[in-house]
Design a protein around this nucleic acid. Structure first.
Lengths: 135, 135
DNA sequence: CTTGACTCTGGAGTATAGTCCATAGTCTAG
DNA sequence: CTAGACTATGGACTATACTCCAGAGTCAAG
């Protein structure tokens, strides 16, 4: 199949597929003399793999590594596991950082009772102004 | 004080300060004929405001709005509160999405018991390969 | 054999938040 | 007065993940 059909199948744009090719995520099965790329079902599978890994928070670079591991017969499950473990650590760190932000913002919102007050008395602006961080 | 001293005080680079100026976050108190920018304590305060707002997850664009509101005597606390509320909604959404990722990754890691196994039998790779998402 | 849909390449643009650089001018201490 | 530290400007570059475009070539149907 040509790139347009593949794009429809994987539900991503032809530009994105060409971009993924440049990034080494996918290779056409063959290329005609005209330059037209030809793909098959396994290409669609690869794209689905990419989309799913992206949903799990992997970057294109990491997905590239995953695909390489996946296609290397000498790869052990442990190598893949290590990547997933590193990723989950990243994710947990991000969650923690966002939760700290949420906590701070919530405290500020609770402190802000009189919405009609001037910005000079706004506890939110006030806390950002403070020298010491003591919300 | 000149830009270098301000940079030391706020613990950010002179390049970043000039970048913030271009983005409208800060203005020198005055500019010499030579082009040298002059700042004062309030400049340092503004930069601290920016850094703290950044820590709370606000983008530079949003901080720009916050600063504008803060310096406008007609601004009410409610306007600031609305921004903070929007931001907290964003943060909560991000947390939820990351938690979903964490859940999926954890499930995959638990499924992966034999780290020495070939990648062909790796449940992580397997789940990314699957047509249906049914981890 | 022509028309219209499709594809190619290469490059530019988007958003975010900076960082780094060369070249040139300025300032101040000794 | 000069050396060395500092500053200015404009533009390029980083990373991520695309998106869009022009101009040219290709392909299949009628």
């Amino acid at each position: 199949m040509l790139i347009g059909e593949l794009a429809d199948k994987a539900n991503i744009s032809v530009d994105t597929i060409r971009y993924y090719e440049r990034e080494g995520l996918i290779k056409p099965v063959s290329v005609r003399d005209s330059g037209y790329r030809e793909f098959d079902e396994s290409s669609a599978d690869t794209l689905l793999f990419v989309v799913r890994a992206k949903d799990l928070g992997f970057s294109l670079k990491e997905i590239c590594t995953l695909l390489r591991l996946k296609n290397d017969p000498d790869t052990t499950c442990g190598e893949v596991k290590a990547l997933a473990e590193k990723k989950i650590t990243d994710v947990i760190l991000k969650i923690k950082s966002l939760q700290a932000i949420e906590k701070d913002l919530t405290a500020l919102l609770r402190a802000c009772t009189d919405t009609a007050a001037s910005v000079d008395e706004c506890p939110i602006v006030d806390s950002l102004d403070k020298k010491e961080k003591e919300i």
